[in-house]
Computed example of a mutant assay.
Amino acid sequence: MAKEKKKNELIEWIKAIFVAILLALFLRSFIFATSIVEGESMEPTLEDGERVIFNKFIYIINEPARGDIVIIERPFKNYVKRVIGLPGDTIEVKDHTLYVNKKVFNQDFLTEEALNRTGNFGPFEIPEESYFVMGDNRAISKDSRNGLGLIDREDIIGRSEFIIYPFSEWETTR
Rank of each mutant, 00 (worst) to 15 (best):
M42P: 01
N106S: 15
I72L: 00
E171K: 15
D108V: 08
I126F: 02
I156E: 01
A65M: 10
P166S: 06
E38H: 11
E169C: 07
K103G: 00
I21M: 14
V52K: 02
K5W: 06
N62W: 08
A139Y: 11
N101M: 10
S144P: 04
I140G: 01
I61T: 10
N146M: 10
E4N: 14
K5M: 13
L110F: 09
F162R: 09
F105E: 15
D68K: 02
Y59A: 04
T45N: 14
E50D: 09
L110T: 10
L115Q: 12
E73T: 03
G49S: 07
K94P: 01
L23M: 14
A33Q: 12
L98P: 06
I61F: 07
R153D: 06
K77Y: 08
L110A: 11
E12G: 15
L10F: 15
I58N: 00
K5L: 13
F54M: 06
F132H: 04
S29L: 14
G88D: 08
L46P: 03
N101H: 09
A114T: 03
R66G: 04
Y165M: 09
I72T: 00
A24M: 09
L115T: 08
Y165C: 01
I11K: 15
L115K: 14
E161V: 14
G39I: 09
E73C: 00
E154F: 09
E92A: 12
G67R: 02
E169T: 11
G88S: 05
I21Q: 06
E9I: 13
E113Y: 13
L150R: 05
I21K: 04
I31L: 15
Q107C: 11
I53A: 08
E154V: 11
Y131S: 04
L25P: 00
E125H: 02
V80S: 02
L46D: 04
E40G: 09
N106Y: 11
L27D: 02
P44Y: 05
I84Y: 05
P87Y: 06
K3L: 12
E112M: 07
T90N: 08
V104M: 06
K81F: 01
N8G: 10
Y131W: 07
L150G: 03
G49I: 02
G119H: 12
E92N: 10
F57D: 06
V70G: 03
I151C: 04
F18A: 15
W13E: 04
K7D: 12
E171H: 13
R82G: 07
K56T: 06
E4F: 11
R74K: 13
R138D: 07
K142V: 12
S35N: 14
D136G: 05
R153Y: 12
I163M: 03
L27E: 01
S29D: 11
G122F: 02
D68A: 03
L22E: 08
D89H: 11
T45R: 11
E112T: 14
G135Y: 05
Y131P: 06
G67I: 01
G88E: 07
Y79P: 01
K103I: 06
P75L: 03
F30M: 10
R28A: 11
N146P: 01
L148E: 03
E50I: 08
G122P: 07
K7S: 13
K142L: 12
I53S: 04
F26N: 08
F162W: 15
G67L: 00
E40L: 12
K81C: 03
E38G: 10
Y131E: 03
I157V: 15
